[in-house]
C-alpha cells in the first residue's frame, strides 16, 4: 500500500503541470458551457412540458459530463500511462522494483480516476447550479395558451423560469429537481471515471504504440456507436450500464418513459446489477492490464543495444 500511494502521490504531482491543469479546466468547463449554450440558444418545442424539458436537460447533461467529459479526462491520463513510461525509457527503473509494475499500473489508474472524476464532478456541480431552476410547480403553472399563470418565486424566474405571460418559446427552462440530478450525475461521474480509466489503461497497455489513437477509435466505434445500437451488442458497453443507471436514478417525463426508447437503450435489470457489471468490468480490465505488463517484454531491441 505504501508503494501504491507513493506512485499515486508522485504521479499526481507530475500531472500538475500548466498544460495538464489547463485540460482539467477544459474538461470541467465543458458541461457548464454546453448547459449555458443550451439555456440561451435552444428553444423548447411548443407544447413541451416542464417534465419533457427537464428530461432533455438531464440526458444532455449526462451526455456531456459523465460521458464526454469523463471519457476525455480518463483518455488523457489513462491511455498513455504505460506508453509514456516506455517512450521515455523510465519503465525499467520501476520494473526492477518489487511488484513495481503492479504499483505503477494501479497508481496511474488511481490518478486517472481522480483526475477524470474530479473534473467531471466540478463540471457537473457548476452546470447543475447554472442550469438549475426551482421546481416551478405552482410557480410556473401553464395556462391553456401555454403562458405562465403566475410566478411565486422571483429566484425561479430569474434562473430560467418564465415570467407570467411568457410562452414556452420565450425562454429555455433549466433542470428541475437539481438535487436528484446532481446526485445522480456525481455517482455516474465516479462510476464512469473508474470504468473508462480501467478500459483505457487496458487498451493503452495492450496497444502501447498507438494507445491514444486506438482508445479514441474504440470509444467512437464501440462506446458511442455500438453503445447506442439497439441490439445485444450494446449490453457489452460501459455506456449501456451508465445510461441504465441514469434512467434509474433520475425522473423522466411520462411521455419519454412511454415512448419505448428505454427498451432499446437501457436495461431492465436493477441499478445494483448495473453497478456490479461496471465494477466487474473494471476489475477485468485492470486484471488484463496487469497480466499484460507482467507477461510481455517491453524492453525492445533498440533499448538493449543489440
Amino acid at each position: 500500500m505504501n508503494s501504491l500511494m507513493a506512485i499515486f502521490r508522485f504521479e499526481l504531482n507530475r500531472i500538475l503541470t500548466p498544460g495538464r491543469v489547463f485540460w482539467w479546466v477544459v474538461v470541467a468547463a465543458f458541461p457548464v458551457v454546453i448547459m449555458l449554450l443550451m439555456m440561451n440558444y435552444l428553444q423548447p418545442p411548443r407544447g413541451a412540458t416542464q417534465e419533457n424539458i427537464n428530461t432533455f436537460f438531464t440526458i444532455a447533461l449526462y451526455f456531456v459530463a459523465p460521458t464526454v467529459s469523463c471519457m476525455l479526462g480518463a483518455l488523457l491520463i489513462a491511455a498513455p500511462a504505460v506508453a509514456s513510461e516506455l517512450e521515455q525509457h523510465s519503465w525499467t527503473y520501476l520494473a526492477v522494483r518489487p511488484n513495481g509494475l503492479f504499483h505503477l499500473v494501479l497508481g496511474k489508474y488511481l490518478v486517472a480516476v481522480v483526475w477524470a472524476a474530479s473534473a467531471t464532478i466540478v463540471g457537473v456541480t457548476v452546470a447543475v447550479a447554472v442550469a438549475g431552476i426551482e421546481d416551478p410547480g405552482d410557480a410556473q403553472e401553464l395556462n391553456q395558451d401555454d403562458t405562465v399563470v403566475a410566478a411565486t418565486d422571483d429566484r425561479a424566474v430569474r434562473r430560467g423560469g418564465r415570467f407570467p405571460g411568457e410562452t414556452a418559446t420565450d425562454v429555455v427552462p433549466g433542470i428541475v429537481a437539481t438535487g436528484e440530478v446532481g446526485r445522480a450525475m456525481v455517482g455516474l461521474a465516479i462510476l464512469s471515471a473508474c470504468s473508462y480509466s480501467a478500459l483505457y489503461i487496458m487498451l493503452g497497455t495492450l496497444f502501447h504504440r498507438r494507445a491514444m489513437v486506438l482508445c479514441v477509435a474504440y470509444t467512437a466505434a464501440v462506446e458511442l456507436f455500438l453503445g447506442f445500437f439497439p441490439a445485444v451488442i450494446n449490453r457489452l458497453t460501459i455506456q449501456y450500464r451508465l445510461r441504465t443507471l441514469l434512467f434509474d436514478w433520475t425522473t423522466q417525463s411520462d411521455e419519454f418513459r412511454n415512448s419505448g426508447v428505454l427498451d432499446f437503450v437501457s436495461s431492465d435489470e436493477s441499478a445494483f446489477m448495473q453497478v456490479l457489471w461496471l465494477v466487474s468490468w473494471t476489475a477485468v480490465f485492470l486484471a488484463i492490464a496487469l497480466v499484460s505488463v507482467h507477461v510481455r517484454e517491453f524492453t525492445s531491441a533498440s533499448e538493449t543495444d543489440v
Binding site: 508503494s3 507513493a6 508522485f10 507530475r14 523510465s90 525499467t92 527503473y93 522494483r97 518489487p98
Partner: peptide, 21 residues
C-alpha cells in the same frame, strides 16, 4: 537515461526507495 525531467533528483530516488516498501 529515462529520468523524469521535471522531477528533482531527491524526489526520484525517494520514490524508487518507497517502491521497496
Amino acid at each position: 537515461e529515462g529520468l523524469y525531467a521535471t522531477t528533482t533528483g531527491l524526489d526520484w530516488v525517494t520514490l524508487l526507495l518507497q517502491l521497496h516498501g
